[in-house]
Amino acid sequence: MIEFTLDGRPASAQEDELLVHAAARNGVFVPTLCHDDKLDPYGGCRMCVVGVEGSSRPLPACATRVSAGMVVSTNSNVPQLRKTLTEMLLSEHLNANPGGRPNELVDLARELGAEAPLVLPDAKREPYADRNRLMGYEPDTCILCNRCVRYTQEVMQCSALSLEGRGPEARIVPTWERSWLDTECELCGGCLSVCPTGAIYEKFLEGAGVEERQLEQTKTTCTFCGVGCQIDLNVDPETKRIVKVTSKPEYVSNEGDLCVKGRFSFNFVHHPDRLTEPLVRGEDGELHPATWEAALAAAADGLKGVIRRHSAQAIGVLASARLTNEENYLIQKLARIGLGTNSVHSCEAT
């Protein structure tokens, strides 16, 4: 640990720790917009500038590492600079909430009491319509923090989004303005997960008027591969339906990252094809809806019949990696002592 001074008080930090983290560790919150711990320091939005003795200009806390004896100030002119920078961003922020995702810029503006003194005449960006049905993008919400692009480049290391152009024309678009579906994009939605303003958002919620913050979150484990990503199922309290899947950087196995299936393939849960009634095959050879009592009796009778006519060894039980440990435990118990066979296995035996 090293010692430094923060707002006139002694403070300690780890060697080479980013100032933004060191300040937080010592109880001083420094706002950031373009910073993301997953990404290389960028220092673009300048929201996190702090005074550092010996430097003629304030330095970005997201890209400056603490050194022993450093004297850091978040007072003096820093609050005014933050407010001005916020005003600047607001002056071209034409749409604050296209898809119900949280907007950190709006939160910050509220906290700092910042309002746009003008609307830039060239603030309006060309709208971007995409035929993909997963991710929406509202350029007028974008603050060009470049987090999404950097996520694709540094974390996914694929080519999906580009920071295009220079000057007032600069904007973020899928590479060469193609559809997301026609770039190398793997539709993981990582871009929207790092977007601080909700400019990229889940299309499911476009125009639904449902805000992420009103949703009920249940933390669980993803069902699509062996990585065990920790996810939050976001449920609309009215309809009791999952409306989106999110994750958090502090979740161990996946650090908030998800893939296309984990983030976007949840509608199967509510699909009309879901089985909602037991079915029993009738005399006519067709499956017919039945009560649970009838179906369970039919299942038990059928299995008992096979045991009676042959033996328990004539029954095979196939459990599944789709199921929980508890369910699989009960299934093998049922096979072994309910039916009397050790023939319980599954197709995921590799």
């Binding site: 669980t220 484990t221 990585v227 196995s253 849960v269 089985l275 369970l296 299942a299 440990n325």
Partner: peptide, 27 residues
């Protein structure tokens, strides 16, 4: 099938999954 029993998806149940690094996670 002679009998079809309508079951639960992962979003409708409690329990645990164990991931590839032997980590037991809650469902």
């Amino acid at each position: 099938a002679d009998v079809v029993l309508p079951a639960s998806s992962f979003a409708e149940k409690d329990g645990t999954f164990t991931n590839t690094e032997r980590r037991v996670n809650r469902v």
